[in-house]
Amino acid sequence: MTIRANVLECRDLKKSFGDNEAVKGVGFRIAEGETYGLLGPNGAGKTTTISMVTGLLERDDGEVTVDGQPLTTASVDAKRAIGLVPQDLAIYPDLTAKENLTFFGRLYDMPSGDLKARVAEVLEIIGLTDRADDRTEEFSGGMKRRLNIGLGLLHKPRLLLLDEPTVGVDPQSRNAILESVELLSGEGMAVLYTTHYMEEAERLCDRVGIIDLGEIKAEGTRRELVQMVGQHDRIRLQATGPCEAGVEALAALAVVKEAGVRDGGIEMLVDDADQSLAQILGKVSGAGVTVTSVDVDEPNLESVFLHLTGRALRD
């Protein structure tokens, strides 16, 4: 594994609104080509964090560096490296898709020639080439969302920040959005992705920070998180034959944490079901047990969140 440069580093971000401490010391890093997810329920402080990271919100404390440059609300040049996709649509309804893109492109000082080509390219990426010259007020919700994203990646930012980009989007558009994020990160863009959809975080993010009540409770790859909270994959085997003997045989395997006979089958907790399943099936059949079906239950981020906060993600 090559060591990749950090595109975003932020430390100890704090922000209060009156008595309400919205963010209480958040910090993380994102390397190039990495997708980092901030997963947390509504009101956890995701948008406040992203606003501080983009220099839109005056922070009470903490530091942000983007591509090695410190970034504050007064920064101008450092902002060239970021592309923001705000949670609420931020497009002119009375301008066309192309006009919206061109306008914001100019604000990034893109030369006209490049801008024209890039606008066409982005329209292609977000699938709005056909509707380029229509006013956006006539667009469907999903199309507006896609344009909202297109505006953020127009100038090929080093860091793309997407704040809940799929809220209220139809499944088809949602899939298109997720695919384009995957594509971008494949091209080396660093992505900060906030969501309260566990599935999106699992699918897109290389690393996930779990945020609740303004604090990052835990951070790591999905597997790291799962293990950190002591969660294991659960394997259920429907089986006939000497199940007791099978359980005894499994005790020899280090990956198997617990095993027992349940409801005419064997149930066990293991570290990594994907890697150990073949081994386990070998041991069990070696003990004379006939397996009729296998059921693997991997713990997800939802259960990690539940474990960490005692609350469900979608309260």
């Binding site: 220099g55 902002k79 923001l84 609420d88 914001f104 000082d109 505006l151």
Partner: peptide
Amino acid sequence: GVARRMMSTP
């Protein structure tokens, strides 16, 4: 929200 978006540009 366009004003904020403009703020996020240089």
